[in-house]
Each structure stands twice: as structure tokens, then as C-alpha cells.
């Protein structure tokens, strides 16, 4: 096997084994989106209804939020996987990989693929919930969703790797969560629609690349729904969304591998 391929495979395989072994992490990463969907989603719609939606559009708040929660679970899991390089450094394993006769970019790619695999397993579990909130899915839809989620997840894990390569300790992690990850999530249109917002906020939503991820997810999930629903939920064409996501994957992929290769 080529050195690059075996590094990608080995690092991916390690991520996977560690994931399977950490039961608490599995429970946590399924529990968190459930919490959002069931408690935040139900709570908000019970207290306020879904006032943003025009009267004649047959969609409720939980259905609106569901694709956003899929995006959220992938966002958190991917960034976390990337940033976990800090633990690898702290507890030494990173050194073992850095002195192995394999290219560094391949190590970063293996890590990103490992993070994406974990995120996709989580997303697949979330997809099982769709029937309960009356979102009909077909095998084709599921396949398309997993494809988009994979691209998003790959870019975000690389993003996490880029951040971790510049961070010395875990102390900055809370900062990253509060000032980077949470805003990315809130501004992606996952939990409120992009309509009737103050213009500064609409601006930030437009420059949040995740907005286009969530938009694409909604487009695919509600492809067969009432055209009024699609018109209300989706703002961009699938082609545009995909272009933005692919660009994000490319830029973050290069940034992540480059930052990882540069560290000593």
C-alpha cells in the first residue's frame, strides 16, 4: 500500500474503533440533537407557534427545524472530532503518528474521514426519527442527504483540525464553542427562518457557509412536499448550495491539511 493510503486508512480505523468503544460519547451525541428537537422544538412551537410561516403553508416548527438539527449534529460532532487532536497531542499519541514514515496531509485526511464517518453514523440514527415527526423519506433522499452531510462534515472536521493545530491546550476550547461553533449554528437558519430579520443578521446568515448546507438539506428532504412549503423553506438553488459546500470543503480541506503539516 502507498504510504499516504495506509496513513489515511490507519488513522480512520483508529477513529472508528475509539468511537465504538466510547459508549458515553455515542449516547451523548444522539441525546443532544434529540434534546433540541424534542424539548427546544416542541417548547418553542408550544409557546409561540410558528409565527414566521404564512397561514397557507402546511409546515410546523419541528418539521422546519429537523433538517437544521441534522446539520447541527454533524457540525458539533465534526468540529469536536477535529479538535480532539489536542487530546492526541496532550496524551502523546500524536507524536507517534508524526514520526511515522507517512505524509502529514494524509494523516489529517484520515482524521477528517474518521470524523465524518462518526458524524454520518450519528446522522443516520437521526434519520430514523423522521417518520415520527411526519417527514417522509425515501432511500434516494437518504442517499442524497448522507452525501451532502458527508461533504459538510469533512469540511468541518478539517476546520477543527486547523483550529487544533494552532491551539496549545484545551483551555481555548470553550472560546471556540462560544464564539465560533454556536454562532455558525445559530446563523445557519437551522432554528429560525431567514425571513423578516434585521439586515445585519441577514448579512451574517448569508456569509455563514452552513446556511447553504441547511438550505440544501431542506431542499432534498422536502423535494416532494407541497410547493408552498419548498418556496417558504428553501432560498437558493441546489446547484448554488452545492457549489458553496464544495468550495467550503476545498478551502477548509487545504487549510486543515496545511495547518496540520506545519506544526512541529
Amino acid at each position: 500500500m502507498q504510504p499516504a493510503l495506509r496513513a489515511i486508512y490507519t488513522i480512520w480505523y483508529r477513529e472508528f474503533i475509539r468511537f465504538i468503544r466510547e459508549r458515553s460519547r455515542i449516547v451523548g451525541m444522539i441525546g443532544q440533537p434529540l434534546l433540541y428537537l424534542l424539548i427546544v422544538g416542541q417548547g418553542i412551537s408550544a409557546a409561540m407557534g410558528f409565527r414566521g410561516v404564512p397561514a397557507n403553508v402546511p409546515v410546523n416548527y419541528v418539521q422546519f427545524m429537523y433538517p437544521g438539527i441534522l446539520g447541527m449534529s454533524v457540525l458539533f460532532t465534526s468540529i469536536f472530532s477535529g479538535v480532539s487532536i489536542i487530546w492526541d497531542r496532550e496524551f502523546g499519541f500524536l507524536k507517534e503518528v508524526l514520526v511515522a514514515p507517512v505524509p502529514r496531509w494524509a494523516t489529517a485526511l484520515g482524521k477528517a474521514l474518521g470524523g465524518s464517518t462518526v458524524a454520518l453514523i450519528q446522522a443516520a440514527i437521526m434519520l430514523l426519527l423522521a417518520p415520527f415527526i411526519k417527514v417522509p423519506l425515501t432511500p434516494l433522499i437518504i442517499l442524497q442527504l448522507l452525501g451532502i452531510l458527508f461533504l459538510i462534515s469533512l469540511s468541518l472536521t478539517f476546520f477543527g483540525i486547523a483550529i487544533a493545530s494552532r491551539m496549545e491546550t484545551m483551555e481555548g476550547f470553550q472560546m471556540i464553542m462560544n464564539f465560533l461553533v454556536m454562532p455558525l449554528f445559530f446563523l445557519s437558519g437551522a432554528i429560525f427562518p431567514m425571513t423578516n430579520l434585521p439586515s445585519w443578521m441577514a448579512f451574517f446568515m448569508k456569509i455563514d457557509p452552513l446556511t447553504y448546507g441547511v438550505d440544501a438539506l431542506r431542499r432534498i428532504i422536502y423535494a416532494d412536499a407541497d410547493p408552498r412549503v419548498v418556496e417558504f423553506l428553501v432560498h437558493y438553488s441546489l446547484g448554488f448550495d452545492l457549489a458553496v459546500i464544495a468550495l467550503m470543503a476545498l478551502v477548509l480541506g487545504i487549510l486543515g491539511s496545511w495547518s496540520f503539516s506545519r506544526q512541529e
Partner: peptide
Amino acid sequence: FQDNSLDDRL
């Protein structure tokens, strides 16, 4: 190495 470099979850 001077410091541990094993993966202690494996």
C-alpha cells in the same frame, strides 16, 4: 519518547 505516546483507549 519521554512522555507517553500510546493511545490509552486502545
